[in-house]
Design a protein around this nucleic acid. Structure first.
Lengths: 146, 146
DNA sequence: CTAATGTCTCTAGCAACTAGAGGTTCAAGA
DNA sequence: TCTTGAACCTCTAGTTGCTAGAGACATTAG
């Protein structure tokens, strides 16, 4: 049995984050010691590592919740798991594409800055006037964490 | 003079967002009509377009606040403006690099999924065991909006 | 004049945590 | 055994950049 601190070290997830995951139902409530402190079995470490890794790959907690639900029924077809992963891949690819457009425009802005005064600054001009702008940005909120 | 709704349409920024920008001090408080409704001059439209465009390029509101402060003093050197833009460029490039690593790993996962049961699913295996994973992900929070 | 639309303020909510207050429990050393 | 200090507990509030809703007032078209 691990205390929450040990589990935190073992899985590389902060103590507060573990409690948060429990609170939102991503981790089951832990056993408690006589003094009300959480005690975890090794399986908790695996589950937490799974969550952490999926977070690193940019899956939302909602997607992870679904994935965990699916891994709890290992006999099922993995089509759904696959679909979630593919959706995530597409999202990542979309974000890359948009970020590359932004990168190109930022580079253009920065490269054309002659180093004069703010009034003549290319960066300010581009930001202030959309006509100076080449890219047409799509719409998307929030990138991938960690 | 524009009402907030006209300004919203003109600048492509939602009414509630305009009020939010005023609240956090990004836009100055507007004039008011006899009935207490906000009235804006054309300059507000420019400022708002500037903010919107900078947001599209991924600048944080804090960075935009700095940029706006600098554009209010147009005689100064544009070195600071340049520095902010370059920092943003670097941030975007870093995010692209990390997303590409994620993309590669997601592709590997998805490509190796044989379509069997969840128990045998490559995706689940990779997520559950960090050793099956090639990339070493850096740490970073939050991508670029819109 | 009335009805519809626009606007006002204020509060609360979203993701995915993080930080802090104020108190309890545990493990180790004297 | 006592004491110190670290780790733990719960609860609340803060972060970013908005969005949504309630309930009330203003404006405008017909």
């Amino acid at each position: 049995m691990l205390t929450i601190g040990k589990l935190s070290d073992a899985a590389g997830v902060k103590v507060t984050t573990i409690r948060y995951y429990e609170q939102i139902g991503l981790l089951p409530g832990a056993e408690r010691s006589a003094g009300n402190q959480r005690l975890y079995a090794r399986t908790a470490q695996d589950r937490l590592a799974f969550i952490r890794h999926a977070r690193e790959l940019g899956f939302t907690l909602e997607a992870i919740r679904d994935l965990l639900g699916l891994t709890d029924r290992p006999d099922q077809s993995c089509a759904e798991v696959d679909a979630i992963a593919r959706a995530q891949l597409h999202a990542v690819q979309g974000r890359i594409a948009r970020l590359k457009a932004l990168e190109a425009e930022l580079e253009r802005m920065v490269d054309h800055c002659a180093g004069g005064t703010v009034a003549d600054c290319r960066v300010v001009q581009v930001l202030g006037n959309h006509k100076h702008c080449a890219a047409d940005h799509g719409r998307d909120l929030h990138g991938v964490s960690e």
